[in-house]
C-alpha cells in the first residue's frame, strides 16, 4: 500500500470510524425491534473498513482472521437452523421463542414496546449473519485494495 490521504481526511476518519461501528452493532443487535438486521448492520461495519482502507492505505494482512470469522458465522447460522429442525418442527423453526432464558421473553400483542429480551432464535441469527456479512464484505474490500496496489499501470 503506497497511498495515504491528507491529514484532514485521516482525522475525520479517526473521529467517524467508532460511531459507524457502534451504529452497525446497534443495527445488528436491535434487528428484531427496529428496522435493520444482520445484513444492513454488517454492511455498515464493512463501510467503516472501506473508510479506513481508503484514508490510510496501509494495513496488516487480516485475510485469515476475516475468513475464519466469516466461516464461523455461516456455520453457526446453519447450526441454529438445524437446531430448529431437531428441537422443533421444521428447519428454521423458532424453538426458543417465549420459553424464558436468553432472548426468550414474551411480547404483548399490539404496539411495539421495545423489549430487547425477546425473539427466540431471531436475534441470534441476526448476530451470526451480521458477523458473516461484515467479515465477507471487509475481506472483499481488503483483497481488492491489495490487488489494486500490486498492479503496474502503464502511463
Amino acid at each position: 500500500m503506497n497511498w495515504e490521504m491528507s491529514k484532514i481526511v485521516r482525522t475525520v476518519t479517526d473521529i467517524m470510524v467508532v460511531p459507524i461501528i457502534v451504529y452497525g452493532i446497534y443495527l445488528i443487535v436491535h434487528g428484531h425491534l427496529t428496522p435493520g438486521g444482520g445484513f444492513q448492520g454488517g454492511a455498515v461495519i464493512a463501510s467503516s473498513t472501506a473508510l479506513l482502507i481508503i484514508a490510510y492505505g496501509s494495513f496488516r494482512d487480516h485475510k485469515a482472521d476475516l475468513s475464519s470469522i466469516e466461516s464461523i458465522g455461516l456455520t453457526l447460522f446453519i447450526i441454529l437452523a438445524l437446531l430448529g429442525l431437531f428441537l422443533g418442527a421444521t428447519m428454521f423453526h423458532n424453538y426458543s421463542a417465549g420459553t424464558g432464558g436468553l432472548f426468550g421473553g414474551t411480547v404483548p400483542q399490539g404496539i411495539n414496546p421495545g423489549y430487547i429480551n425477546t425473539g427466540g432464535t431471531v436475534p441470534l441469527m441476526n448476530i451470526m449473519v451480521g458477523l458473516e456479512v461484515a467479515a465477507a464484505l471487509s475481506l472483499i474490500l481488503l483483497m481488492m485494495g491489495k490487488a489494486s496496489d500490486s498492479v503496474e499501470v502503464e502511463a
Partner: peptide
C-alpha cells in the same frame, strides 16, 4: 459506500 470503494480500487488498477 462499498460499491464506490470497489470501483475506485478497480479504476486505480487500470486507466
Amino acid at each position: 459506500a462499498l460499491t464506490t470503494a470497489i470501483f475506485i480500487f478497480a479504476i486505480k488498477a487500470s486507466q
